[in-house]
Design a protein around this nucleic acid. Sequence first.
DNA 1: ATGAAAGCGCTAACAT
DNA 2: ATGTTAGCGCTTTCAT
Lengths: 369, 369
Amino acid sequence: MTGITVRSTMSRKGSPATIIDVAKAAGVSKSAAARVLSNNGSASARTRMAVLDAAARLGYRPNQLAKAMKAGSTQSIGIVVPDVANPFFSSVLSGFSAAARSAGFEVIVMSTDNTADIEARSLELLAEKRVDGIAVAPALTDASPTIEQLRSEGLPLVLIDRRLPNLGAIPLVSMDHAAATELATQALITSGHSDIAIVTEARATASEITELLDLDDHATSLLRPSMQRLVGHARALRAHDIAFDESLVVTAPYDREQAAVVVADFLRTDHHATAIHGTNAILSYASYRAFKQLGVVIPDDLSFVGFDDQDWMLLVHPAVTVVGQAARELGEAAAQTLIQRIAQDTDVHDVFLSARLIERGSIREVNPA
Amino acid sequence: MTGITVRSTMSRKGSPATIIDVAKAAGVSKSAAARVLSNNGSASARTRMAVLDAAARLGYRPNQLAKAMKAGSTQSIGIVVPDVANPFFSSVLSGFSAAARSAGFEVIVMSTDNTADIEARSLELLAEKRVDGIAVAPALTDASPTIEQLRSEGLPLVLIDRRLPNLGAIPLVSMDHAAATELATQALITSGHSDIAIVTEARATASEITELLDLDDHATSLLRPSMQRLVGHARALRAHDIAFDESLVVTAPYDREQAAVVVADFLRTDHHATAIHGTNAILSYASYRAFKQLGVVIPDDLSFVGFDDQDWMLLVHPAVTVVGQAARELGEAAAQTLIQRIAQDTDVHDVFLSARLIERGSIREVNPA
DNA sequence: ATGAAAGCGCTAACAT
DNA sequence: ATGTTAGCGCTTTCAT
């Protein structure tokens, strides 16, 4: 007998050791190896040792592709968001990943640049990868045939942040948009304000809003988030018999620079607002840019309530009173809901997280005239 | 003959149509179907039609798992970051995803909470999923056996933001940390400052820094980013014959709240600094919190240079002069480098992006005494 | 142009 | 306890 030949620890470059390599090295059959490696089925101590040892020596790494193929499940879920760099979505993502991981799922993230095309393609890709389910925060389109298609194929789905029309029975995980702005406007009213401007992406006349106010909860939840938020504002107004003044609705695009211009234009106007509410992170930031540019002093000249607690809100003077949504928790809830939906087919229902008002110093108390 | 029976458009729930289903429905063989579906090989117009039609009717969706198994390539790459919710990394991510997508790769994102354990597990998972390559922004540990292991297995790898000791020949995509802070300190010196405090995660005595200054570029790049940045500061000082004063080094943890406390403590001290530089996003933010809390007026009481251009820097008064790193571009470069590395084995080299100084209003010109 | 068959790595009956 | 075998969905020779 010649001396022992030590096989290289390394598998040949580019192709990791397979279970067959391990079996051979251990001198047992493929299935014996499989049994000990997946810890399922019986094996003698001797076999077990030999296999484990060979696996370690060879740096065996199970091929999840093959496993998934057999099992019909990849233990991975997808999440599709408009923009990973948006602080709201990156927080959602962070919660989503953490929750998924602790449930034994991996996450494949797709960012769509808020583009319907990329969104559709991303969803298809995820489906082709045979993820076990997908959470999607839809781009700002009115409907997504792809989502509907996937749903009808029976792929577990969860919607984040907004429901889409015509999308039957896909659970939604979202904050209650209307309730959130209602909170903000309510706070302003409580402090004595009644001429409250609102910076929003939505556009609506007083009569349109009035109609919307009569919608039931479900119908409301079908509106775009921005519109839902505007409805919440109108609700608070109505609760205090304050007329909805459409000249106080500042409709601005979802873009820092452009929105800042729009808000500045409004402020230069002969408006009568004593308070103003920015209804999302971008718009709140843009509003503040406009205040700074025009030398508007908060809260002396104008009271302000922001949306989505952001870093800068603590840095400016005074710190900004804001409606905060728990983005991370929302992500966690989305993952949990999706995984639940994957586990059993039992109907899983919508999850609404409520926003809370974080009071700081940007509202001035006024005595009602 | 009976009438035509229209098969349900839908495949049975949970199991999408396979290529065999399509072949059957089209009345051809599996391989014929495969040929037209992958557009590779010859087929008569008649066959082509029949197959395409059947595929559409059945909602056929290729199983990428099976494809990858055959091909030995998944066309997907992984990226591992300490925290997706950190603005720097989410921007990196955004660039990375975009670049990967346009090169035909999908991205699997893993967020590790800056934990060595999770990082190791994430890397293994990615490898088991047989991604074609991985980009990793390492957690703050000193070494990663897992990364080294994967490298030795021949898996294409790219490091983001920092190199790890003992990690042979893995290309690095990063900003030049030392050059970045050098820029900041240089700007302060040019404006007449010489007593410049620096807020950093690193800790070093004057003599330690002196030693570090003699390191060559490669050795320097092996240091932690925070230490590299401190070295850059020291370099600028030395270039102007200003002594490195270790009492001006404010060592703070990577945590908004705690760092703010540390900076405030320093400011209350009887220091002689006329300027201060925060060396990363968190620390810059924390510094500003401390300024606000203590009523320090920028730049009258103290000149300030921040790091990583952030939203709030434009909102405070005066706007903050900052060293900006192009996070998105960095992500793009990382993806490109990785993909290049996957394509050919040709040596791919390090990529350094340079930071630039964005001059705004937080530096006061002083006349050197 | 088309079909039969092998094989990617793994698991799970089913023998023995 | 262990080995043999079939099969997950796909591509790709290899015949025909």
